[in-house]
């Protein structure tokens, strides 16, 4: 099956770290991550070996809060250029930087290589419902772009968890009805709040990136079987859930295997692993 991974951070790629010593330090400071740095070629082989045919790679502009971009849009662009059939980008920007942020949207989002924006209110230090940011949302909506926004847990104790509370996204989902919004991590542990928004608003989707309660199999069992119930997921969320890994915090392959392992209708699995992402990307 062709699989689309909607949540990939290209932050352990050797080509990005070369000549950019800030990156390695930032991986520890921001994400508390200690992972091996791999050549892009190995990363591409990894994705292919897992059956991933498209990977949505995310930028993140933390220049105001941490003095670093993880990675910058230029670096994203460079990686996409090397494998344009495999990678699609969501740019990073600081939404509190007004015109400068709008310029980044104009400059990069071409609906071909770059399809939208990734924001992380907790790490970037802003409330997502801050009306100063509305011009950004409006611009994305006008362009038909995607907004992937971090919701839920963060291991970084310097980040503000309140800003990643899913219900803070409701005013945006409600006001910008044509803006496709993806709430990451299903908002874990505030899963039901995220589902409220996904059920209530046609333009809200959920990604299932990362695992918080054990292995990917443990986590999906807890979320899909014990918390939500498979029947509810099949009946209500079939068109709302996107597969994501949160690489390099968790490898795509292990997450895919965990989805395949669930006692869930195979058509629903296909929607999660591929079809819903294709719909949003189109």
């Amino acid at each position: 099956m062709v699989i689309i991974d909607f949540h990939v951070h290209p932050i352990n790629i050797e080509e990005i770290h070369k000549g950019n010593p800030q990156m390695t330090t930032a991986l520890r400071d921001v994400y508390n991550l200690r992972v091996s740095i791999q050549p892009l070629r190995v990363f591409v082989d990894q994705l292919k070996s897992f059956g991933v045919s498209k990977a949505v790679i995310l930028g993140l502009d933390l220049s105001r809060t941490y003095g670093v971009k993880l990675p910058s849009n230029e670096e994203l662009d460079r990686i996409i250029s090397m494998h344009p059939d495999l990678f699609i980008g969501l740019i990073g920007l600081d939404p509190l930087r007004g015109d400068e942020a709008l310029d980044e949207i104009e400059k990069y989002i071409d609906h071909r290589r770059f399809k939208g924006v990734k924001l992380n209110p907790s790490l970037q230090g802003f409330r997502p419902d801050d009306e100063r940011i509305y011009p950004i949302y409006e611009s994305l909506e006008d362009m038909g772009a995607i907004l992937t926004i971090h919701t839920g847990f963060s291991w970084n104790i310097r980040s503000n968890l309140l800003y990643s509370y899913p219900l803070l996204i409701e005013p945006i989902a409600s006001k910008f009805k044509e803006l496709r919004i993806i709430l990451t991590h299903m908002g874990w542990p505030w899963i039901w709040e995220s589902i409220c928004l996904a059920l209530r608003y046609e333009n809200v989707y959920l990604d299932i990136a990362d695992t918080f309660t054990g292995t990917p199999k443990d986590h999906f069992k807890k979320v899909f079987i014990e918390t939500l119930g498979i029947r509810f997921v099949e009946a209500f969320l079939k068109d709302k859930i996107l597969f994501g890994s949160n690489h390099p915090r968790m490898e795509s392959g292990k997450m895919i295997e965990a989805i395949q392992y669930l006692p869930m209708d195979s058509e629903v699995k296909e929607s999660i692993l591929r079809l819903n992402a294709l719909y949003i990307l189109s």
Partner: peptide
Amino acid sequence: HHHFFREDGRMAV
């Protein structure tokens, strides 16, 4: 071993 590994910043799986 399968728990969050703070030293690595990720779940050990």
